[in-house]
Design a protein around this nucleic acid. Sequence first.
DNA 1: TATATTTGCGAACGATCATTCGTAAATATG
DNA 2: CATATTTACGAATGATCGTTCGCAAATATA
Lengths: 192, 192
Amino acid sequence: MEKTLTRKDLIFKEAAGLFQSQGYVGTSMRDLATKVGLKPSSFYSHIKSKHEILETICNQSAARFLSGLEQIKNSIDDPFDQWIATVDLHISIAFENPSAITVFNDEWRHLEGDSLTYFLSQRKIYQQGVVGVIKSAILSGKMRDLDPNLVFNTMIGATRWLHFISSPGKASAERIAGQVQELLLSGLKKES
Amino acid sequence: MEKTLTRKDLIFKEAAGLFQSQGYVGTSMRDLATKVGLKPSSFYSHIKSKHEILETICNQSAARFLSGLEQIKNSIDDPFDQWIATVDLHISIAFENPSAITVFNDEWRHLEGDSLTYFLSQRKIYQQGVVGVIKSAILSGKMRDLDPNLVFNTMIGATRWLHFISSPGKASAERIAGQVQELLLSGLKKES
DNA sequence: TATATTTGCGAACGATCATTCGTAAATATG
DNA sequence: CATATTTACGAATGATCGTTCGCAAATATA
């Protein structure tokens, strides 16, 4: 048994926060050192490079989305309900892990070589998974017949600003989640 | 009469493209010099600093949104139709000026001091303007009663991925625009 | 043509970047 | 307690950053 948060994990956590507010390139190892309470040179007993930090955070985020989707597929049968749960997944990840969301959305572009290739493959797998859910929901007759990739991207974008909300109370978070779901499901037009 | 594109404008244009793909911090003056066909030191006959480039691009984008909104308010009476036109505004800006969109959405965070203050004030004015449209549309009874700022942010996000589409044909762009509008207006649920 | 202004460039500046290395303190292991 | 391993640090390295400066070429002005 160890401390639940190893120093390595602390580095990743603080880095995610800094990458969110300043961007990967805009965050220096000195910034991170100050945040963690170490000198810059001390990092290299724990990690290999700055790139490794970005890589780890990106992969953790990708895994979070993929495992969430797997769980949805395993526990819910109706494809339209799977879709609703997927939107909820994005909303709750945005609230529970805001900095990782930003890195997952934006900062992965600074990955290079194999890290980039792997991340993009994971991302593609995830998108194809969600698109599969959307296609099934359309076939089931419960979802409007729109381009599945367009639906995917629009949903991603529509839930993408939530992580800006600093720390919503639980009630507030649920109210927001409910309204976003309603907007995506029923649209803005009254009495359609 | 001069050339329609001054060297200064060319610098801003190429910079916007680089800022989009590499980020502001990730783009060096040497990168930009290569793109424009100058040596790094030659920039400073035309511009004051790298910051000035970002500032100019951000302000141009803000002005583009604000003037678009003004025109909508002046030419359309019904608030719900104003809302639809606003969404169209975002979609068409995303297609017509993709790199400026990214800078407007993401890179403004690297502004500093007065530039940042001014940009945020312009952005706030714009948001308040659109929120006003939304409130009126709700009052008119044609729009569902959701939190106006939530509607604003969700729309911003939902149209935020469009600039990734490299160069859609006009037909394709209109098809995409139509589907995004339909999704936002009528939602995903069939027979609501 | 003579002169003034704009534009471009090579070289260099100080600052900051991620990272390495030798070494010392701290900690774990026997 | 003695030894081995992990962790932290100060100093330095080479690279790259935005920017400045003096000077030449190009261009506009007269």
